[in-house]
Amino acid sequence: MRNIIWLLILTGILFTGCADNDSTNWRLSPTFTYDNMTLHGTEGKFGIYKVNGESDEPEFPVNKGRQYNVYFLESTEDFNGKRYKMTATHQNSDDIVELYEWEVDNKQSGAKFSLDKEGLWKIDIFVDDEPYTSFIVEAK
């Protein structure tokens, strides 16, 4: 009987260890203020700001291409000349779309993209093909 209990405990530990540790927390990421702008992203690391469209529309309007300014905020990193890429994963469909790819100049860049479905999207940022940060936004 004692061996069966240990076997069950060991099996439980094994299943817990094999669980998906990279599961996304699908809560809207908080915005933050930088240089008098309200940014979406990861405070102290990366931010994005919509620069065109209607003032009363959502920050991420569905099926409407918008221009965004992109800011790399880490003061200790040199991003100049590095290439960044943005992808997005939709919460309900798991569709992954490539949003934009370009070089960083003076810790910033532009990006033009749209999200094609309403709901929550996980935006992943890669720098020189290495994962950098991610955050959740809502397309309306």
Rank of each mutant, 00 (worst) to 15 (best):
N3I: 04
I4C: 09
I4M: 10
I5G: 10
W6E: 13
W6F: 09
T11E: 06
G12N: 12
G12K: 06
L14R: 01
G17E: 08
A19L: 14
D20E: 14
S23N: 13
L28N: 05
L28I: 09
S29E: 00
T33V: 15
T33M: 15
Y34V: 10
Y34R: 07
D35Y: 12
M37S: 10
M37I: 06
T38P: 05
L39D: 04
L39S: 03
H40I: 00
K45I: 14
Y49D: 00
Y49G: 00
K50D: 03
K50A: 08
V51I: 11
V51W: 07
E57P: 06
E57I: 02
E59T: 04
E59Y: 04
F60P: 01
P61R: 08
V62M: 09
Q67W: 13
N69W: 09
V70Y: 00
E74M: 15
T76I: 12
E77Y: 10
D78F: 12
D78A: 15
K85A: 12
T87M: 11
T89L: 13
Q91L: 10
S93D: 05
D94T: 07
V97G: 01
Y100L: 05
Y100F: 14
Y100A: 08
E101G: 15
W102M: 12
K107R: 10
Q108Y: 06
S109F: 04
A111N: 04
K112H: 08
L115W: 02
G119A: 03
G119C: 03
I123D: 00
D128S: 02
D129V: 03
D129H: 07
E130D: 09
E130C: 05
F135G: 00
V137F: 01
E138N: 11
E138F: 05
A139S: 13
